[in-house]
Amino acid sequence: MHGFANPARFLRIARWLMPLCMGAGFVVAFGALGWGLFFGPAERLQGETVRIVYLHVPAAWLGMAGWMGIAAASFMELVWRHPLAGIAARACAVPGAVFTAVCLITGSLWGRPAWGTWWVWDGRLTSMLVLLFLYFGWMALSQASEASDGGRNRAPAIFGLVGAVNIPIIHYSVIWWNSQHQAPSITVGKSAMAGAFLWPLLLAMLGFTLLFAGCVLARMRAILANQQAEARLRRKALGAAY
């Protein structure tokens, strides 16, 4: 754990891990999308619209995983003050928000032909929209705290942990409450989804997860490099002043 907290060691790992994640993610994700789109079957009731699942479900998973990443990094930030924890949290925000938005948009494009409506205010859809707004709020707060408390990240870390309460609410919304959205098809060790849909979906989830990891690593390298550049320039400016 402490090994990863060392920026130099992190860079040494990220330098080969980031392109690996991105390359493998590309091949797997787009292979799975092609499989589902062109070779997968249509669904008994939904017909061709079911193919949206190969984008919608990975996007939903990564939208939630992004916030889980922010929460985990925030926890490390608050307890152990790892130098990379705040950077990791900030790196998760944009990819997580993008996937949450993709989940909402593809869901809307799926809901119109399948349910007969673009949007309803049921528990699942509302809590997912709340997640998107949480991302926006978190990004604004983290930017503000970077400017004001010198990147100590206390306020965004607390926000990241409190906001994590929304994740189980999203997941259980379709179980606790009557909702327009159906219950989960894939639960631990069981699937209500035929293999012809399940396998390309699992592959797409793996591929998009790798892509997500690659993007987070690239964001971390970017944030770290910017911090190092600024520290260097500040030191130089000080040196010139004396």
Binding site: A59, P95, V102, F208, G214
Partner: peptide, 28 residues
């Protein structure tokens, strides 16, 4: 609807990946 969803999903993924890479290169 399938085509629109794929256009949005793939477009957003590619844009995000590209932006992460370019901003990383610029920062380093």
């Amino acid at each position: 609807f399938v085509a629109a969803a794929y256009a949005v999903g793939i477009g957003a993924t590619l844009a995000m990946t590209l932006w992460s890479l370019l901003s990383m290169q610029r920062a380093e």
